[in-house]
Computed example of a mutant assay.
Amino acid sequence: MTPLRLAIVGLGKIARDQHLPSIAAMPAITLVAVADPNATLDGVPHFASLEELLRNGPPIDAVALCTPPLMRGAQAAAALAAGKHVLLEKPPGAVVSAIAPLTEVARASGKTLFATWHARFAPAVEPARAFLAQREIRSVHVIWKEDVRVWHPGQAWIWRPGGFGVFDPGINALSIVTRILPRPFFLTAAELAFPSNCAAPIAADLDFTDAAGLPIRAEFDFRQTGTQSWDIVVETDQGRLTLSAGGAKLIHGDNVLMDEKKVAYPAIYRRFVELITRGESDVDLAPLVHVADAFMLGRRVVVDAFEE
């Protein structure tokens, strides 16, 4: 099989830390270009924008969009219109309504649109899903707390409208919970803490339920120092199931069922190639819808200004 000719658009931290190593390790993909107004990659043709890449760049089959969420919808539309397959970093966009029509564009053009949720590819997620499918679930508690200064240093866009704030990591948790629970759920109440100098929240407390009345509580916080918390605790009729380390570790009661440090992104790119081979798309907007609901329903409180 001829390698997929891929261009990365947006050469920031996530692209350098996760996408580039994963692509380099995959014979099925070759990186042929990057597009970023401020960053370059040695030995790879560079373009200032997606538009310039599509106009003047080398032949490509697909693009991976690693730009801020507010830009991704329009960029995906442009890439699909140019006949390219599209991989969207999470979240797929800042506006739910901008993403859904792209699936029809992809279908009509015969191209693949893949809205990735990298947390779903963590090794313990599918085993947790299988475990919960056979149990009575009594409650779910999500604790997703990290230090924004460590994980998003200098990323001013995250505090602007459409930047998501604490929901940038929080949506990872929602992507896992929407995958492992057997029934859809919906928001009932939320409180969002906005720094006095920011347009996006630094913390959020969310309450959900489903048609059966299952209590689901999520706590997101960007102000965590010391030990970082990426945990989902599920109480069942056969004991407690805990996903920790962002889905890398699975614990049933006191028994560690799985503790792996596999990186999710190679699996994402394998899935992308598989979708292209099958002529399919994969666009699940459920995690993004939950975030939109939180902004719609959430009670807003103002907290201390955020300083980098």
Rank of each mutant, 00 (worst) to 15 (best):
T30S: 11
V291A: 02
A156E: 11
A94S: 14
T225L: 11
F222P: 01
A100F: 00
K111R: 15
A76N: 02
E51L: 01
A28L: 02
P123W: 02
Y265E: 14
I216S: 08
R129A: 12
I143S: 14
L20A: 03
L50E: 09
G253S: 14
L132I: 00
I8C: 04
E136C: 00
F131D: 13
N197M: 06
A218I: 06
D221H: 09
P287Q: 01
P195V: 07
E260Y: 05
P27T: 04
M71L: 09
R217H: 15
S229Y: 14
V9K: 10
D282L: 13
R5F: 01
V95C: 04
I143H: 11
D205W: 06
D284S: 01
P287C: 01
K111V: 07
A189M: 01
D304W: 03
S175G: 15
L257P: 02
H252F: 05
L257R: 13
R300E: 14
F185E: 11
R271Q: 09
P69K: 08
T112M: 12
D231A: 09
R160S: 13
R270P: 05
V96R: 10
L65E: 03
T188Q: 15
A81C: 00
F222L: 13
V34H: 10
D17R: 02
P184I: 00
A130V: 14
A81V: 01
D221W: 04
A286G: 08
G110S: 03
L54C: 08
D221N: 15
L102E: 03
I202Y: 00
V95A: 09
W230H: 11
T30H: 02
P215V: 10
G93D: 04
E191R: 15
A267W: 09
L70I: 11
R138K: 15
P45Q: 00
D61V: 07
G43C: 07
F164Q: 06
W117H: 11
D168P: 00
R278M: 06
A78N: 01
A74I: 09
